[in-house]
């Protein structure tokens, strides 16, 4: 019974997004940390994972949403800026990091709002 409350696609989707955002933050942090490491190749969420997440969110399929695992891979599209073979662009990483953090704020508020709605339904009180 109670599981149904937490298996709504929007709630599951927000949870998966939070997982993905946390993993992406770690990937971007590793990129910034290795901005000066020779031959380092920047990593990011795997394109295949992004595609799966988007299709699962679009189809609102609870089963596929709950089994998704975020993955990272080497960003093959990034090109080295100088001769040491490092593909990290510091400005680019920080912009992405800021967006990632902002998106994280949005998703935590979505989760909080979903829980507040549940509480409203249970108690009849908004607070």
């Amino acid at each position: 019974m109670i599981e149904a409350l937490f298996n709504q696609p929007s709630y599951l989707g927000a949870k998966r997004m939070l997982d993905a955002l946390a993993v992406r933050h770690e990937a971007l942090a590793a990129n910034v940390a290795n901005a000066e490491t020779p031959h380092y190749k920047r990593i990011d969420l795997a394109p295949s994972f992004r595609a799966e997440l988007q299709s699962a969110l679009a189809s609102r399929d609870a089963a596929s949403l709950s089994t998704l695992q975020p993955r990272v891979s080497v960003d093959a599209s990034a090109l080295p800026l100088n001769r040491d073979g490092n593909t990290v662009n510091l400005e680019h990483e920080l912009v992405e990091l800021g967006q990632n953090t902002l998106q994280h704020t949005v998703e935590t508020q979505m989760v909080s709002a979903a829980l507040a709605k549940l509480r409203l339904a249970i108690t009849g009180k908004a607070a």
Binding site: L18, L21, A22, H25, L28, A29, V32, A33, A35, E36, L90, E93, L94, L97, G98, N100, T101, H104, T105, T108, V111, S112, L115, A116, A127
Partner: peptide
């Protein structure tokens, strides 16, 4: 200059991570 800018960038990452953690802790609060 390169070293200190890189240092600052890593501090910015840390700050972002901290704010994400605080947001996580505030899930479900009002």
């Amino acid at each position: 200059i390169v070293a200190s800018r890189t240092y600052e960038a890593n501090l910015a990452v840390l700050k972002n991570g901290r704010s994400m953690a605080l947001q996580d802790l505030s899930i479900g609060k009002h």
